[in-house]
Computed example of a mutant assay.
Amino acid sequence: MNSWNKRTREVAHLLNPAFCGRMLYSAINAYSIKTKRAFPFPLVYLVLPLVLHKETRANINSRTQLHLWVQQHPQLLIDFPQRTTELIPITNEAVELLLQTGKLVLTPNAELEVSPTSRSLSKTKYVDSEIAECLLKCEHIARWFATAGKVENIYIELGVRP
Rank of each mutant, 00 (worst) to 15 (best):
V105R: 12
V70F: 02
R22I: 08
T64H: 02
N5L: 13
V127H: 00
L106K: 14
L112F: 14
N109W: 07
N5H: 15
V11G: 04
A110S: 14
K137L: 05
G102E: 05
D79W: 05
W69E: 03
T84I: 12
L76K: 10
R119P: 01
I60D: 00
H53S: 06
S122A: 10
V95I: 15
F41C: 04
V127S: 03
L52T: 08
P49F: 08
H67N: 14
E133Y: 02
F80D: 04
Y126L: 15
E10F: 13
L66M: 08
E96V: 07
L66E: 01
V11Y: 14
P89W: 11
R22V: 06
N2Q: 15
L77I: 11
V11C: 03
S129A: 15
P40H: 09
T84W: 06
N109Y: 08
S62E: 06
L99I: 10
A132Y: 03
L52S: 10
N29W: 05
C134T: 08
T85P: 00
K6M: 15
T107W: 09
L66W: 00
P89D: 08
N2L: 15
Q72A: 13
L66H: 01
F19A: 09
E86H: 12
S120G: 02
A18M: 12
R22M: 07
Y31S: 03
P81A: 05
E111C: 00
Y31M: 02
C134S: 09
G102Y: 04
S32V: 02
L50S: 01
K137E: 02
K123D: 08
H53D: 14
S26A: 15
N109D: 13
E86G: 05
G102N: 08
R57V: 04
E113H: 14
A38W: 01
P89G: 05
L46R: 07
V11W: 09
E86V: 11
A12L: 11
P40F: 06
V51D: 01
S118F: 05
P89R: 11
P40Y: 06
E139P: 00
L98H: 01
L76Y: 05
E130N: 10
T35C: 04
E133H: 13
I90T: 07
S118V: 09
P108L: 03
T101I: 06
L48N: 05
M23Q: 03
T84Q: 15
P81G: 07
L97K: 07
S122I: 05
T101D: 11
L68S: 10
N61P: 07
L135M: 09
S120I: 09
I28M: 05
L43D: 01
E55M: 14
L50K: 01
V105T: 12
L98S: 01
F41M: 10
S122V: 10
D128F: 02
L52R: 07
I131S: 09
R63S: 11
H53T: 13
P49Y: 02
T64R: 04
Q65E: 13
N92H: 08
R119Q: 12
R57A: 11
L46M: 15
V44P: 00
W69Q: 03
P42C: 08
D128E: 11
W4C: 13
I28K: 00
Q65R: 12
L121I: 15
A94H: 01
A58E: 14
T85S: 10
N59E: 14
I78S: 08
L98V: 05
